[in-house]
Computed example of a mutant assay.
Amino acid sequence: MDEFIDFLQWPAMLVTLYAAYLIGSKRPDRRIFGFSMFILSNLLWIVWGWHDEAWALIALQVALMAMNVRGIFKNEH
């Protein structure tokens, strides 16, 4: 299980990069999907951070998740 949790940092990083790419779109539906991908990356980072007891990282991800939820509502059609 430890190896799986350690591996999560790589998909978390890739999802974060993909989300950043998507929110740069001019299309609101792609930006909303980008914020959704950011939320997925926040959750992946939280799982990884919990395992490694990285409490500052977890606090950061919770705050960023709140901003990503706000971003979804600000970008609705």
Score class of each variant (00 low, 15 high):
Thr16Pro: 02
Asn75Leu: 05
Gly49Lys: 09
Phe7Glu: 06
Met65Gly: 14
Ser41Arg: 03
Ala56Trp: 03
Ser25Phe: 01
Phe73His: 06
Ile5Tyr: 12
Asp52Ala: 12
Thr16Ala: 14
Gly71Thr: 01
Met65Trp: 08
Glu3Lys: 14
Leu14Pro: 04
Ser41Lys: 01
Met1Glu: 01
Asn68Gly: 07
Ile72Arg: 00
Trp10Asn: 04
Gly49Ile: 13
Thr16Tyr: 14
Gly24Pro: 11
Asp6Pro: 01
Met1Lys: 08
Ile46Ser: 13
Leu17Tyr: 09
Ala12Tyr: 06
Arg31Leu: 06
Leu14Met: 11
Val69His: 01
Asp6Thr: 07
Tyr18Trp: 09
Leu64Thr: 08
Ala59Glu: 09
Ile72Cys: 00
Trp45Val: 08
Tyr18Gly: 00
Tyr21Ser: 04
Ala56Met: 05
Ile58Thr: 02
Phe38Ser: 14
Ser36Leu: 15
His51Phe: 14
Ser36Met: 12
Ser41Pro: 01
Ala63Thr: 04
Ile23Leu: 08
Lys26Phe: 00
Trp55Asp: 11
Val47Tyr: 11
Arg31Gln: 15
Val15Thr: 11
Met13Cys: 08
Val15Ala: 06
Leu8Pro: 01
Phe4Arg: 07
Glu53Ile: 15
Ala66Trp: 10
Asn42Trp: 00
Leu17Gly: 06
Met13Tyr: 12
Trp50Arg: 06
Ile23Glu: 09
Ala20Asn: 07
Glu76Val: 14
Lys74Asn: 06
Phe73Glu: 01
Asn75Asp: 07
His77Pro: 14
Gly34Glu: 03
Ala12His: 05
Leu8Ala: 12
Ile39Thr: 05
Gln9Phe: 11
Ser25Val: 10
Trp55Leu: 13
Ala63Phe: 10
Ala19Phe: 08
Leu44Arg: 08
Met37Gln: 04
Lys74Met: 02
Arg27Gln: 07
Met1Gln: 02
Gln9Asp: 07
Arg30Gly: 00
Ala59Cys: 08
Phe35Ile: 06
Ala19Arg: 12
Ile46Gln: 08
Phe33His: 09
Asn42Thr: 02
Pro11Val: 11
Ala63Pro: 02
Arg70Lys: 15
Gln61Leu: 12
Asn75Tyr: 01
Ile72Lys: 00
Arg70Thr: 04
Ala19Asn: 01
Gly34Asn: 03
Ala19Val: 03
Met67Asp: 00
Glu53Lys: 13
Arg30Met: 08
Trp48Ser: 11
Val62Ser: 02
Glu3Arg: 09
Val15Met: 08
Val69Trp: 03
Gln9Asn: 09
Phe4Glu: 06
Lys74Arg: 08
Trp45Pro: 05
Gly34His: 04
Ile39Met: 09
Met67Asn: 06
Gly24Leu: 15
Phe38Tyr: 12
Gly34Arg: 03
Ser25Met: 04
Asp29Tyr: 12
Met67Ile: 05
